[in-house]
Write a protein that binds this DNA or RNA. Structure first.
Length: 660
DNA sequence: GAGCACTGC
């Protein structure tokens, strides 16, 4: 492994601090306490990454791939693309790309493009070699999101065809070596021309302060209770400073806040302000997290993983880490994605602890034992690609002309079962042909629409059925987490509000009613409030719908309304979701259904307008599994539509399921 | 009568 630095500058340091204990954040001076005055240039020079400018540029010049190990706050994301531009990498009509797993609000430099991994993947559909870019920087690669992994695999391929392309991968310490191994394409005694193929690793320190770590002596049986009592003792014994508590979901968070309020009341403790934080929270409530803590008070933020990567909170001095988060797991045999509370990795634990050291030295209280951390916790989490349904991923690779999906060189390979399942689903949708090639035009069109292929297929079908106006609304609503406001204690009112829009045909049609009402109200937030509808979610529906409208126009498909012909709408939905059909068990007293495809026991989700209605045949949008398998968002269908929509899928194997 | 970590086009 090679490292380069310029004599006279500080030698780059390869951090290797995978052990627990005090985090090895190094911070050079008091300069980290803010920018003070001075020119913009001076400010840039004070960022930790500045010291490595020459080393980074030298490495990029001489290496095909450079891996930058950098802690948060080093300034790498904003500065490195700028250094590259100043060094001439954006000259001669070339550009620099910097990708993130999430959207980022950064200033757009000319000839430097900040974009998400997913968007860059989309760009490859028009420009497979990404030929307009001279350097591509993949930021936060250690998060191993689905799109990041696909992108890394493709970049490695592109590098073979474009030796002049430079890749920068910014990653946390723990992943750096495996990234380097993945991109090391150098063969022994190979005559090297141009940049060396062996990746360089550079390490840049962050701006964080030391965080002292504490563990519990014995395993805790109830992390919510334990988190609350830890908060109480921090409040008792530690100096002022806000507390961030990592829990797994809304339920945990609500319970914890209730417990804390009770305990503070019964013990007469004052000065604690609890704030919940999770993605489903209405915007106004989320903003409370950022409001300054009143003088003499201590803010306690109870958060999901959203505070681990997506949001940065200022003023946190104490972190309480439950050691758990909700994670998605996919079972290719049952074709079901589950959200499960699972132990986090050491990498996550480090990231969480680091949240305590942004303003001054902090403390992190881990609600698990040191022995557990050292001996049982996995070093890194399972990459998303090994925990997901791969239908979207496979169609994207197919669209990029990658035929041998099973032989693709991944940073981490998904299971063959998942890939085969994805191929089967795409085949049944008519997107792939017998040779596993994209069909024309359906396959290419579905690949062009950046949504779940089942949804894309539904949209294409709606054009034939003449109900695309309605279907793109439904597609937009389905891509939003929830349009209802999550409210505890006023469940009854929410249910009543829902009834105002409920359609006998099911949830999708109900969504259409909500959308119509929202438009008729002139997109009023008051109207949303009155009807327990999430205003921001509805704005988002409008936005996504506009995008879908543009995409359909680009595909040369006109929008058309079916003017209230609901049966047509349901047929279009069935054309995409025929595989998700279920039939009510005869004589079932508890609403048990069986899926037509695999005879799995499933139930209508209590949030559905068809809950307790239990029609004989239904099609569902997705399954969510807890103690039971629940079907979310269902519509009634006529079973004959299934054979109409997918004769190849149903005629052979399942005709015996149909009573009529 | 249950629950939804996150993200994107």
């Amino acid at each position: 492994m090679s490292q380069f630095w310029k004599p006279g500058t500080e030698r780059p340091r390869l951090v290797d601090d995978e052990e627990g204990g005090v985090l090895l954040y190094t911070t050079s001076s008091s300069s980290s306490s803010g920018f003070g005055y001075g020119s913009l240039e001076k400010q840039r020079q004070r960022l930790p990454v500045y010291k490595y400018k020459t080393a980074i540029l030298y490495s990029v010049e001489t290496h095909a791939t450079t891996i930058i190990v950098g802690e948060t706050g080093s300034g790498k994301t904003t500065q490195i693309p700028q250094y590259l531009k100043e060094a001439g990498w954006a000259e001669g009509g070339r550009m620099i790309a910097c990708t993130q797993p999430r959207r980022l609000a950064v200033q757009e430099l000319t000839r430097v493009k900040f974009l998400t991994d997913g968007v860059l993947l989309r760009e490859m559909m028009d420009d497979p070699l990404l030929s307009k870019y001279s350097v591509i920087m993949v930021d936060e690669a250690h998060e191993r999101s689905l799109s990041t992994d696909i992108l890394l695999g493709l970049l490695k391929k592109i590098q073979r065809r474009r030796p002049e392309l430079r890749i920068i991968i910014s990653s946390a310490t723990i992943e750096a070596k495996s990234m380097a191994a993945f991109f090391n394409t150098r063969r022994r005694r190979e005559e090297e021309q141009g940049p060396t193929k062996e990746p360089a690793i550079l390490s840049v320190e962050g701006r964080g302060f030391n965080v002292e770590i504490f563990y519990v002596d014995d395993p805790v049986s109830d992390y919510v209770r334990s988190a609350v009592s830890t908060v109480m003792s921090i409040h008792d014994q530690e100096r002022m400073g806000d507390i961030l508590v990592f829990l797994t979901g809304q339920d945990d968070i609500d319970t914890a806040i209730q417990l804390l309020t009770e305990e503070a009341q019964s013990s007469g403790k004052q000065g604690l302000v609890s704030v919940p934080l999770y993605s489903g929270l209405p915007r106004a409530d989320q903003d409370l997290v950022f409001s300054p803590t009143p003088r003499g008070k201590r803010k306690v933020i109870f958060s999901t993983n959203i505070a681990e990567t997506s949001l940065t909170l200022e003023g946190i001095v104490y972190v309480v880490d439950s050691g758990f988060s909700k994670q998605r797991f996919y079972n290719p045999i049952s074709d079901i994605e589950n959200l499960v509370v699972a132990p986090i990795s050491k990498a996550s634990a480090r990231q969480r602890a680091g949240r305590a050291g942004r303003v001054r030295p902090g403390k992190c209280f881990r609600l698990y034992t040191e022995d557990y951390f050292s001996n049982e916790m996995s070093v890194v989490g399972i990459p998303e690609i090994q925990r997901s349904n791969l239908v979207s991923c496979v169609i994207q690779l197919k669209a990029l002309g990658i035929d041998n999906i099973l032989g693709f060189d991944w940073p981490a390979s998904p299971s063959p079962e998942s890939m085969i399942r994805a191929l089967e689903v795409l085949y049944s949708l008519g997107v792939l042909d017998d040779d596993a090639k994209l069909t024309s035009p359906t396959g290419f069109q579905v690949a062009e629409i950046p949504l779940d292929p089942l949804i894309s297929k539904m949209i294409l079908a709606s054009c034939e059925f003449g109900c695309s106006e309605e279907i793109i609304t439904i597609a937009a609503v389905l891509s939003i987490q929830s349009i209802w406001i999550p409210v505890r204690g006023v469940q009854k009112q929410l249910d009543e509000a829902k009834l105002r829009f409920a359609a006998a045909e099911g949830d999708h049609v109900t969504f259409l009613n909500v959308y119509k009402g929202f438009i008729q109200s002139n997109k009023s937030s008051k109207w949303c409030h009155k009807n327990f509808i999430n205003y921001h979610a509805m704005r988002k529906v409008i936005e996504v719908r506009e995008q879908l409208k543009k995409i359909t126009q680009r595909l040369g498909i006109g929008l058309k309304s079916c003017e209230g012909d609901i049966q047509t709408i349901k047929k279009a939905i069935t054309a995409g979701f025929f595989a998700n059909a279920a039939r009510l068990e005869p004589f079932s007293h508890n609403g048990m259904y069986k899926t037509l495809r695999t005879s799995q026991e499933v139930y209508i989700h209590p949030s559905s307008v068809l809950f307790r209605v239990n029609p004989k045949f239904i099609v569902y949008h997705s399954l969510v599994s807890t103690d039971r398998q629940y079907m979310r968002n269902v519509i009634t269908i006529d079973p004959s539509w299934l054979t109409e929509a997918a004769p190849h899928f149903y005629q052979k194997q399942l005709h015996s399921s149909f009573p009529q």
